[in-house]
């Protein structure tokens, strides 16, 4: 039996593209943190007039699917305008890579998110961003679409394991439809928190598991 990765994933893992740092980047972003596992950083050079990405580089403290996705996403984004690059999805990356094992999807999502975060960073720095909006259920759901259910490799919203969300006094409670002793409970909890804790008007995030 071969490794659970496609040849293309392995090829990009062996010979990653666009790795490294850009000195004086026009924008940069970081997703994940060493404390909770994978971490990836991304740097952009953007043509101010055309808003095209002229150079893009990434660094990864992560596993094979993280490194491979970082490579593919930077290849896809290079030469595109920011608006075009924003539309690159995890699906585009996964398709280019010839698929990823479900359990590994969450590592690769990080590499897609970091591109969006870098574009946002650019927009923020160049005054292209609108006012800060209050966190709503909708926003939370949207963010949770980036948290994967490692069992199937689809996000936790689509797979219906988020039962409900409550937002009160800066606390978000995410009600889950899985028990505490679920194989991936700790992993999901960690990722949910990571996605939501940075929202500007949120102080606390609780993940509530189903009673056994």
């Amino acid at each position: 039996m071969p490794l659970p990765y496609s040849e293309k994933v392995l090829e990009y893992f062996k010979h990653p593209k666009n790795v490294g740092k850009i000195e004086n980047p026009d924008a940069k972003a970081k997703e994940g943190s060493p404390a909770c596992g994978d971490m990836v950083t991304l740097y952009l050079k953007v043509d101010e007039k055309t808003k095209r990405i002229t150079d893009i580089k990434f660094e990864s403290f992560g596993c094979a699917s993280n490194i491979a996705t970082g490579s593919i996403i930077t290849e896809l984004a290079k030469g595109k305008t920011l608006e075009e690059a924003k539309k690159i999805t995890w699906n585009d990356a996964a398709k280019e890579l010839g698929g990823l094992p479900p359990v590994k999807v969450h590592c690769s999502v990080l590499a897609v998110d970091v591109l969006r975060a870098a574009i946002e960073d650019y927009e923020e720095r160049h005054g292209l961003i609108k006012e800060r909006v209050k966190t709503t259920k909708e926003i939370v759901f949207k963010r949770l679409k980036h948290v994967m259910n490692p069992l199937v490799g689809l996000d936790i919203v689509k797979t219906n394991i988020v039962k409900d969300i409550e937002i009160e006094d800066g606390t978000i409670s995410v009600m889950m439809d899985v028990p505490r002793d679920h194989q991936f409970a700790n992993n999901i909890e960690e990722e949910v928190k990571e996605r939501l804790e940075h929202l500007w008007d949120i102080k606390k995030v609780e993940v509530v598991f189903e009673k056994e």
Binding site: G37, D38, C63, Q183, F184, N187
Partner: peptide, 18 residues
């Protein structure tokens, strides 16, 4: 890929991602 078989305690390697 270099023919060496070892294992890791990394979360990325475990079945529970822990």
């Amino acid at each position: 890929m270099k023919g060496i078989a070892v294992i890791t305690g990394s979360a990325c390697f475990s079945r529970s991602l822990e």
